[in-house]
Amino acid sequence: ATNIVSKVKWYNSTKNFGFIEQDNGGKDVFVHKSAVDAAGLHSLEEGQDVIFDLEEKQGKAYAVNLRIK
Rank of each mutant, 00 (worst) to 15 (best):
K33R: 11
A1N: 13
H32Y: 05
V29C: 04
N65Q: 04
V50T: 02
S34Q: 10
N3V: 06
L41E: 06
N3K: 07
V64Y: 05
K27Y: 09
T2D: 07
Q58I: 07
V5I: 12
V31C: 03
A35P: 02
K69S: 12
G26R: 12
L54I: 15
E45T: 13
Y62N: 06
A35V: 09
G47S: 05
N24G: 12
I20N: 01
Y62P: 03
R67P: 01
H42K: 13
G25H: 09
T2K: 14
K60S: 07
E55K: 11
S43T: 14
K7T: 08
D49N: 11
K69N: 12
A63L: 04
V31Q: 00
V5E: 11
G18I: 03
F19P: 01
E21S: 14
D37F: 14
V36N: 00
G47P: 01
A61T: 14
Q22F: 14
E21M: 15
K69H: 13
H32Q: 04
G59N: 08
H32T: 05
K57W: 12
G40Q: 07
T14G: 11
Q22P: 14
L44G: 01
G25W: 09
Q48L: 09
G40I: 04
E55S: 09
I20L: 15
S34K: 10
Q22I: 12
A39R: 03
V29E: 00
V8I: 09
W10R: 03
E21H: 14
I51G: 04
S34L: 11
V64I: 12
G26T: 09
S34M: 11
N12T: 06
D28M: 08
R67Q: 08
E46S: 15
E46L: 10
K60Y: 11
N16D: 04
T2G: 07
G59P: 01
K57Q: 10
A63H: 01
V31G: 02
G59A: 05
L54R: 08
N16Y: 09
W10L: 03
D49G: 12
Y62L: 05
H42M: 12
L41G: 05
V36E: 01
Q48V: 09
K33P: 02
I20V: 06
R67L: 05
F52G: 01
E56A: 09
K7V: 09
K33I: 06
E21D: 08
V31S: 00
F30P: 01
V31F: 11
K69M: 14
S6W: 09
F52D: 00
E46W: 12
L41T: 04
F17G: 02
E21R: 15
K7E: 01
K15Q: 07
N24F: 11
E21Y: 15
K69W: 13
Q22V: 12
K9I: 06
E45K: 14
K57F: 13
W10M: 04
K57T: 10
H32P: 04
R67V: 07
I20W: 00
K57M: 10
K7W: 08
Q48Y: 06
D53G: 03
F17H: 05
L54W: 05
V50G: 01
T14A: 13
D23R: 15
E45Y: 15
Q48T: 09
N12M: 08
D53E: 05
E56K: 12
K69V: 14
G47R: 06
V31R: 00
D53F: 04
S6K: 04
V8Q: 02
D49K: 12
L66H: 00
V31N: 01
Q58E: 13
N16T: 07
H42N: 12
H32W: 04
N3S: 09
A38Y: 08
L66P: 00
N12I: 07
A63N: 02
Q58N: 15
I4L: 12
L41R: 05
E21T: 14
V29A: 05
G40N: 09
G26L: 11
V8W: 02
I20D: 01
F17Y: 15
V5Q: 12
S6Y: 07
E21V: 15
V36D: 00
H42A: 13
G47C: 08
V31W: 02
A61M: 14
F52H: 03
I4N: 07
G25N: 10
A39V: 06
Q22R: 14
G25Y: 09
N65I: 03
S13C: 14
H32K: 03
I68N: 06
N12H: 09
Q58T: 08
H42R: 13
G25L: 08
A63R: 01
K33G: 09
A35D: 05
H42S: 13
K15P: 00
S43F: 12
Y11N: 00
H42L: 13
G59R: 05
K15D: 04
V5A: 12
V5H: 14
T14M: 13
F30E: 01
K9R: 10
S43R: 12
E46K: 15
T14F: 13
V50I: 14
S43Q: 11
K33H: 08
S13M: 11
I68T: 11
N16I: 03
V64K: 09
G40A: 06
D49R: 13
E55M: 14
T14K: 14
D28T: 05
I51A: 06
N16W: 08
N3M: 08
G26A: 11
A61H: 12
Q22E: 07
D23W: 15
D53W: 05
K69I: 15
E55V: 14
D53A: 03
G18D: 00
N16E: 09
Y11W: 10
H32C: 07
L41K: 05
V64T: 10
V50E: 01
F17T: 00
V50C: 03
K27M: 10
A38T: 08
K9T: 03
V31K: 01
K33E: 03
G40H: 08
Q22L: 13
V5K: 12
K15C: 10
K15A: 08
V29N: 02
L44N: 01
H42W: 12
A61P: 07
D28N: 08
L66Q: 00
R67Y: 05
K33C: 08
T2Q: 12
